[in-house]
């Protein structure tokens, strides 16, 4: 799809001479990445050490002087009695969220895009993105007044002679509560990036489609969707990288002991049991594990995407 001209044989020096500005533009970002992101990666060695903050002279020295313990911290994580169960919960919740909360913002953006009244669009857009600004503690408070045993919904169900629903105490219902509260919080915010992509679609393409007599769905399939495919696939790819982060903060705020069986995920378990508390090493090890899984997934997804869709992030 790109008209790559046969300039491949050009020597790098020649290329650089013509395109030095591109390298110059890249410099600030690279300095930042190397300085603030790569250098601190020396902290990752803590995952293989027993970190003692006071082992050396100052923290940096302490990082280096702490004792190596090999894979002990990883073993502690993998050997915890219910590791596979926790991993299962993590993946299930993550995939449920992916299935529901990935398409929702796209759908919302498409709906908003169809609105012709400018005032209506602006007001609606502003309103739907507001829940993003509420913290999970607040959202939990709101939903609890609605959905607890004494809550509004269950009282209404009771009045109608229906069975009560244990939104917070029924283990399988609770997972959906996690998914849907996240939909409510993040869909509007997530739609912004798609809306920006939709506004960038060339109007001429629509006009041409009209001239060809294309109906609504034809325009949707042939103009609108292809216009946002790049951003959609990017978002999917980025989401895969965080597959093991099933929503630590949200779960920690919302769950309770009656739903541990389905809602306890790796990070919440480690937090709750206190292995990760004040234990920088275990926390680092868990983070490293999550990163590696995310990285492998992203690299494979990128490869698959390049092979089958001819499109890739890098």
């Amino acid at each position: 799809m790109l008209k790559v001209k046969p300039v491949r044989k050009q020597s790098f020096i020649m290329y650089f001479r013509g395109n030095w500005a591109l390298y110059l533009l890249s410099v600030p970002g690279l300095i930042y990445i190397v300085g603030y992101k790569i250098l601190p990666l020396i902290g990752l060695q803590l995952a293989f050490k027993n970190f003692d903050l006071f082992a050396g002279n100052g923290i940096l020295d302490s990082i280096f002087k702490s004792k190596w313990v090999g894979l002990d911290h990883f073993e502690k994580i993998f050997r915890s009695s219910n590791f596979s169960h926790l991993l299962g919960n993590t993946l299930t919740i993550s995939l449920m969220k992916l299935a529901v909360n990935f398409p929702l913002p796209i759908l919302l953006a498409l709906m908003l895009n169809e609105v012709q009244s400018r005032v209506f669009t602006r007001v609606t857009q502003t309103l739907v993105y507001m829940p993003h600004f509420l913290s999970w503690v607040i959202i939990h408070g709101i939903f609890m007044t609605l959905l607890s045993a004494n809550g509004f919904v269950n009282r209404a169900l009771g009045a109608a002679g229906l069975a009560e629903i244990g939104f917070y105490t029924n283990p399988s219902v609770f997972r959906w509560l996690l998914v849907l509260t996240e939909s409510w919080k993040e869909s509007g915010w997530g739609a912004i990036v798609y809306l920006a992509a939709l506004t960038s679609i060339d109007e001429e393409l629509y006009d041409a489609a009209y001239v060809d007599g294309a109906g609504y769905f034809k325009r949707l399939i042939h103009v609108t969707l292809p216009g946002i495919v790049p951003i959609v696939s990017l978002m999917l790819l980025l989401r895969l990288g965080g597959i093991l982060g099933a929503g630590h903060e949200q779960i920690l705020v919302m769950y309770n002991p009656t739903v541990y069986s389905t809602a306890d995920v790796l990070s919440t378990y480690i937090y709750r049991i206190g292995i990760g508390k004040l234990d920088f090493s275990t926390a680092t090890a868990l983070g490293l594990f999550e990163s590696m899984v995310g990285f492998i997934l992203m690299v494979s997804a990128n490869r698959i995407s390049r092979k089958f869709l001819g499109r890739s992030l890098w």
Binding site: Y36, P40, G43, G241, G287, S291, F295, M298, W314
Partner: peptide, 17 residues
Amino acid sequence: LYVFTMLFYGGMVAIYV
């Protein structure tokens, strides 16, 4: 490089340093 640094994070001790 950007993808790598997006996923791997040196931890709070390191950025404190």
